[in-house]
């Protein structure tokens, strides 16, 4: 069950690589949050109820519902439809995505061999998510895409931490979540400001400060 879920999580990335409508990204993001929630429900058993409740809160409520909803409203408000032409075209992006997938699975196999107590598939897919999100950040130009990609990065890291299954103290978890939440909130605030102050809302307009 968890294997299927995790493959599904990987395919969301492919979807994002191929799509060019911003709203589609947000939907993929919501899907990722939901899948993470399901993963926790299915896979994780031996943890305290408070931590469990917390994880549910984090994945389903925040990652799956609140943040996507929040971002969607921003996108609709600012009437952003499509991604502008990225540096590397859509076609090659998909090609690169498949390469990233390959690398992810190689990492998964390798991690299975190292005997370090990692869940291989979790590990591989999380690496796929992280690398893919970084690639998207570099490649895509819209600022809102960057915010979305940051969320994917966070999801990847979350998955990575699940792959290790080391329990963090609750204080840390709360802090991480708070940071994430405030971070996204700030991103959106600044995104709105940039929308106000600059005509275009892609990253090339932000190159005034240089030497």
């Amino acid at each position: 069950m968890s294997d299927i879920l995790i493959i599904l999580l990987g395919t969301t990335i492919l979807y994002i690589f191929a799509a060019s409508r911003i709203e589609a990204y947000v939907k993929a993001l919501a899907l990722q949050g939901t899948i993470l929630f399901l993963l926790i429900v299915v896979d994780i058993k031996d943890i305290s109820w408070i931590n469990f409740a917390f994880l549910i809160l984090e994945t389903l409520i925040i990652k799956g519902i609140i943040i996507p909803y929040f971002l969607l409203s921003v996108i609709r408000k600012n009437e952003i439809g499509r991604e502008v032409e990225p540096y590397i075209s859509q076609f090659y992006s998909v090609l690169i995505a498949s390469l990233i997938f390959m690398f992810g699975f190689v990492a998964a196999f390798w991690s299975a061999k190292t005997n370090a107590g990692i869940k291989p598939l979790y590990f591989g897919v999380s690496i796929i998510l992280i690398i893919a999100s970084l690639f998207l950040i570099i490649n895509r130009k819209r600022i809102i895409t960057h915010i979305l990609c940051y969320m994917i990065l966070e999801n990847g890291i979350f998955l990575l931490s699940l792959s290790v299954a080391n329990e963090m103290p609750i204080l840390v978890n709360v802090g991480v979540l708070l940071d994430l939440f405030v971070g996204i909130y700030l991103f959106v605030i600044f995104f709105n400001k940039i929308q106000e102050m600059y005509d275009g809302n892609h990253i090339d307009t932000l190159t005034e400060l240089k030497d």
Binding site: I143, H146, Y150, G183, L186, F187, F190, K193, I194, M197, Y198, L206, E208, L209
Partner: peptide
């Protein structure tokens, strides 16, 4: 305007 740009780069 310039501080907004700087802030965005910093935060991101």
């Amino acid at each position: 305007k310039s501080s907004l740009e700087a802030t965005w780069k910093y935060v991101y």
